[in-house]
């Protein structure tokens, strides 16, 4: 799993590549949570994410809680149909904005 982070004034963009499972979720968390703590909004680019397990959902939950406490927004981009299903089965889908392109994501922030 690879992570690319870029920051602007109020948005941190986190592009993840690969699988977010119990083996990689801890690594993802340690790479991003400092940046999330410093930012008002988070744009998560999942267009190169091929698998998310409950360990990945736990990272999403941590991001959500951090950003929600600042009244910010978490927007997801490029979520595959399968990952969307997992988020739907667990009720996560209701708490995140999900868009198909980064341009559209930026418009909501």
């Amino acid at each position: 799993m690879d992570v690319k982070i870029s920051t602007t004034d109020k948005i941190v963009t986190i592009a993840v590549e690969g699988s977010i499972d119990s083996n990689t979720a801890g690594d993802l968390q340690s790479k991003i949570m400092d940046k999330v703590a410093e930012s008002q909004n988070v744009l998560l680019d999942f267009s190169k994410v091929d698998f998310v397990s409950s360990a990945g959902l736990r990272v999403l939950l941590m991001i959500y809680r951090q950003i929600k406490s600042k009244n910010g927004k978490v927007v997801l981009v490029g979520v595959s149909e399968e990952i969307y299903d997992v988020m739907s089965m667990t009720g996560f889908v209701n708490f995140f904005e999900i868009t198909d392109t980064i341009e559209n994501a930026l418009k909501t922030l």
């Binding site: 409950s54 959902l57 736990r58 939950l61 959500y64 809680r65 929600k68 089965m89 667990t90 708490f95």
Partner: peptide
């Protein structure tokens, strides 16, 4: 429940 109040345990087995 809203995500900020939700327990996260058992989610894997449910999935």
């Amino acid at each position: 429940k809203p995500l900020e109040e939700r327990p996260i345990g058992g989610l894997g087995i449910m999935l």
